[in-house]
Nucleic acid binder design. Structure first.
Length: 479
RNA sequence: CGGGACGUAGCGCAGCCUGGUUAGCGCACUUGACUGGGGGUCAAGGGGUCGGAGGUUCAAAUCCUCUCGUCCCGACCA
């Protein structure tokens, strides 16, 4: 049991912050609401980035960079967009020692500048589609911030595409949602509920918003990624138009989609335990730590270290460069070294002491379940990758099982209220209400519509309004 | 932005109510010894503008005002 981490059961919020602190993922910045992403946190972000970036490029997207500062007038061109984002924008009013003629907004998202540029780049149907992504920081002045989940500045990727037809743009929106789901499930081991957002939760300026919703270990929902079908709203506001095959002028159809450093928060809150961080192997920057351990320095230098380096080299060749680390902190006591590696969330530990050396094995310890067992040296190259895969699947299955255990059905508002008066969780219910009904439900229970899951076509009687033909919604309290 | 809690060494805290020696404790850190397979033992050390600014007072960590920040609960959001 870690002594520097609050119990998850007793104080979930404190536990979350303690895990991040113990794993040295992030720290507070001197500016309110901002955070420092420390090297181990950033390495995790880079690993996440790598998987998404590959998938974007595999589907024909290219990276570019648009500027941090946006003329305030751009934001004002799309009515809903400005209404949604204006309250949380940081604005630059002075530069070069003078007041600016037109204030500049620090981007809260880049639909507007990108729309402005697309209007210049698009003239013909042959110019479409445009499939651009950018990795950058954005700023949204948050009233209440939490490390990784909600900070005033955060890192993300924003994809922005423009298409000749509505069908193609809708297809893109759903394709990216599915890529998100795939990586979250298969790499980050986060079971995802992919679906359509309700009217009240839609992106400002979008016709339709889709999201990947995941359940954290306190049964609250976290929106882990979003994909928006923007219709022709931004195309009209920024005049992204083109001549079609028949020579007629048409507005393009656009999409945007993003995932952020919030995913790190999702990993923390899905997999970690009272001992600290747990990182799924496929996304872990360090997948294996080798721990030579003995009070006898001669033995360490002559036998344990060479063997440790050898296995690290062998495994690095299989698992990828730098994915195996040898812990050489001999000034620390064994217990300290164990705990330090546990709290970092490294999936697998290989201990090598005198006993193991004589028997030509490593003592392996899994981070996900604490199991320990011997791996003979000559089997390590085969066994270790297998075990890492097993850990990966175990983490996913465990999270999925947890979600299933905490997903309930409600046929009427009484049942619904009872669930949220208790432990809460995900509640499936047919819902035909609008913004007003959602608001009432939130006021009374704290829960909101997380999404209308795709792949759940069934309809029924609305649990709240009693209307027939309602779609299936999933409700939860959320971050 | 509303309600609550808090800010004293790197971290966690005591001291404040009732102002008065040189501001203390635990952990961490440094050095040494004994140690060493799940957060050791002993000894000797280093480290503080008591979040900041004003004020009251002979005297402020302590009382008053303002301010900045953090955490929790709400409203708003990736």
């Amino acid at each position: 049991m870690a002594r520097n981490i609050a119990s998850r059961e007793k104080d979930y919020s404190q536990w979350y912050l303690d895990v991040i602190k113990a794993a040295e993922l992030a720290d507070y910045a001197p500016v309110r609401g901002c955070m420092i992403i420390r090297p181990d946190g950033y390495a995790l972000w880079e690993s996440i980035q790598k998987h998404f970036d590959e998938a974007f490029k595999d589907t024909g997207h290219v990276n570019a960079y648009f500027p941090l500062l946006i003329p305030i007038s751009f934001l004002e061109k799309e009515a809903e967009h400005v209404e949604g984002f204006a309250p949380e924008c940081a604005v630059v009013t002075h530069a070069g020692g003078e007041e600016l003629e037109e204030p500049l907004v620090i981007r809260p998202t880049s639909e507007t500048v990108i729309g402005h540029m697309y209007s210049k780049w698009v003239q013909s149907w042959r110019d479409l589609p445009i499939l651009i992504n950018q990795w950058c920081n954005v700023m949204r002045w948050e009233k209440r911030s939490r490390l990784f989940l909600r900070t005033s500045e955060f890192l993300w990727q924003e994809g922005h595409t423009a298409h000749a037809t509505r069908e193609e743009a809708v297809e893109e929106t759903l394709k990216m949602l599915d890529i998100y789901r795939d990586i979250m499930e298969n790499i980050l081991a986060l079971p995802v509920l992919a679906g359509e957002k309700s009217e009240g939760e839609r992106f400002p300026g979008a016709d339709n918003t889709y999201a990947c919703e995941t359940m954290m270990s306190d049964r609250k929902a976290l929106q882990a990624g979003t994909s928006h079908f923007l219709g022709q709203n931004f195309a009209k506001a920024f005049d992204i138009s083109f001549q079609n095959r028949d020579g007629e002028l048409e507005h393009a159809w656009t999409t945007s989609w993003g995932v952020s450093t919030r995913l790190i928060g999702a990993i923390v809150m899905t997999h970690s335990d009272d001992d600290g961080l747990v990182i799924p192997p496929r996304v872990a920057p360090v997948k294996v730590v080798v721990l030579p351990i003995s009070p006898d320095r001669d033995l360490v230098d002559s036998k344990l270290m060479p063997k440790s380096s050898e296995i690290a080299e062998t495994l690095n060749a299989i698992l990828g460069k730098r994915s195996v680390k040898v812990d050489t902190r001999f000034h620390m006591r064994p217990g300290d070294r164990f705990f330090a590696n546990i709290q970092k969330g490294i999936p697998l530990r290989l201990e090598l002491g005198e006993k193991e050396y004589q028997r030509e094995v490593f003592q392996a310890v899994r981070r996900d379940n604490g199991e320990r067992f011997d791996i003979p040296w000559d089997q390590a190259a085969v066994k270790v990758p297998e075990i890492l895969e097993d850990i990966q699947h175990n983490l996913y299955n465990r999270a999925l099982e947890f979600r299933k255990q905490n997903t309930f059905k409600a046929g009427n508002f009484e049942e619904f209220k009872d669930i949220f008066a208790g432990k809460g969780g995900f509640v499936e219910a047919f819902f035909a209400g609008g913004k007003e009904e959602e608001k009432l439900i939130k006021e009374e229970t704290g829960a909101t519509v997380r999404c209308f899951p795709l792949e759940r076509e069934e309809t029924g009687t609305c649990f709240f309004t009693g209307k027939p033909g309602a779609k299936l919604a999933v409700f939860a309290k959320s971050y």
